[in-house]
Design a protein around this nucleic acid. Structure first.
Lengths: 234, 234
DNA sequence: CGTCATTTTGAAGACTGTCAACGCGCGTGG
DNA sequence: CCACGCGCGTTGACAGTCTTCAAAATGACG
């Protein structure tokens, strides 16, 4: 019944996943070799709210495993426009790049703890350990799948669908039952969904008036009919 | 001076790429081990215009290397809305999935020839050959980078920027100098850019009136100031 | 309790979508 | 050879959604 046991729509098509990939999504499990390796070789670091973990175009020095808190990744245009590509939670791997520079920035939302592993170490391992190389591939493929989902949302859905889909996703990830405590601001949500803060706010208000959600506070949202949210964007 | 030597904006941040990845982008080079492997193990297949190469949610049987023609990949919603995630040209790898089912569909645009390689064979190799595993990772990472670029385009730019960016990308890929011969229809472009065919058509007409392009025919477009297109979405 | 950031709400406007008609190119068949 | 139908693309008028601009309300924090 727990939210974490219900795969988000864009993930449940993975008929078969490596155990490590599953564990990476569900949180720390020191028994699995891949994440155990990360934990062993890495060192803990903490970031305050708003702190940049890494920046776009910077060389990749570390790969991060998120232990606590929340992180968003995004791209910026020179005129300030921002596209938040995703929100990341404990268990997620961050900054895993095949190239040598980061293709996007990562910023802590609220206080965040990570385990940082030297990318060079990880790379070195892939030369000998094909299992690790495949694991990196799986993680990247999952990120790619999410981006396909986001592109569909951004390109072919309206504000109501975008917000619904976002809430459904957060409900799955944040694991608070029907009650969702959002760590990010309206601006962050808007920049993720390709909307403005006003439209996000208005849409949430309309949804509350329509009875599909309840806004305990601006960040604490109760989804009344989760199934309805789930099938929003099949 | 050739278009192929000018990396598109979302690629030129790869400070370092494997040689095979570079060759995969630039077209057939039988000397590189990865593509040579594909050619050796695969068999040629041809598809007519509009033919489905593989469908979303189908099990992954083959991985394809595009030899001739053009292919588009897309996701569909049950109500018919479509998001074209990308257009693919000779040298590109198609249908490379980390999971067991395709996350999107692929359809031939015009007559297309591919080399199909059993995915199981490729997978088997990754267990022993870490180099191949890393190669698959690189290819997936490049696809991911493109999707980030697309998300920024879909989420944070207007019709004019989207079309400009699309034309710049096609000019780079199609390698016809300033003259671009588009293989895809207005509908395909619209579904890629999150617009309607009318908006795409209108935008192109406006660009022609503004002097930035010339429409020799509806599919043959001449870019007058390519640099201007390049920096549209930095 | 005051200040400032965040969020909500309102009104007006812009951009894109929708609906509809027309033009063009092309293959088919009379 | 030309009429016709059909798919594709273009253009116009209008409508709708979302954005922009503005201001009030709420909440966090010293």
């Amino acid at each position: 019944m727990l939210a974490r046991n219900e795969a988000p729509p864009y993930q449940n098509r993975y008929v078969q996943e490596t155990s490590a990939a599953v564990q990476a999504r569900n949180g720390a499990n020191p028994k699995d070799p891949f994440n155990a390796t990360l934990e062993l070789m890495g060192s803990r670091r903490s970031f305050a709210r708003g702190a940049e973990i890494f920046g776009q175009d910077e060389p990749v020095e570390y790969v991060y495993r998120l232990i606590e808190g929340a992180v968003m990744t995004f791209r910026l245009l020179n005129d300030g426009r921002r596209q938040v590509s995703g929100f990341h939670f404990p268990g997620d791997i961050l900054g895993l790049e095949a190239g040598t520079s980061h293709r996007f920035s990562a910023e802590a939302i609220g206080k965040t703890t990570v385990v940082a592993v030297k990318r060079s170490v990880l790379t070195a391992i892939t030369h000998s350990d094909a299992g690790v190389a495949r694991e990196l591939w799986f993680l990247t493929a999952r990120a790619l799948d999410r981006m396909h989902h986001l592109a569909l949302l951004l390109g072919r859905s309206n504000a109501h669908e975008r917000v619904s889909c976002f809430l459904a996703e957060m409900a799955d990830r944040l694991d608070g039952g029907a009650e969702v405590e959002l760590p990010m601001s309206r601006k962050d949500i808007a920049d993720h969904l390709g909307l403005t803060i006003e439209t996000v706010s208005r849409t949430l208000s309309q949804m509350e008036r329509g009875g599909s959600i309840e806004l305990a506070s601006s960040r604490k949202i109760r989804l009344c009919h989760r199934a309805a949210f789930r099938k929003m964007i099949a």
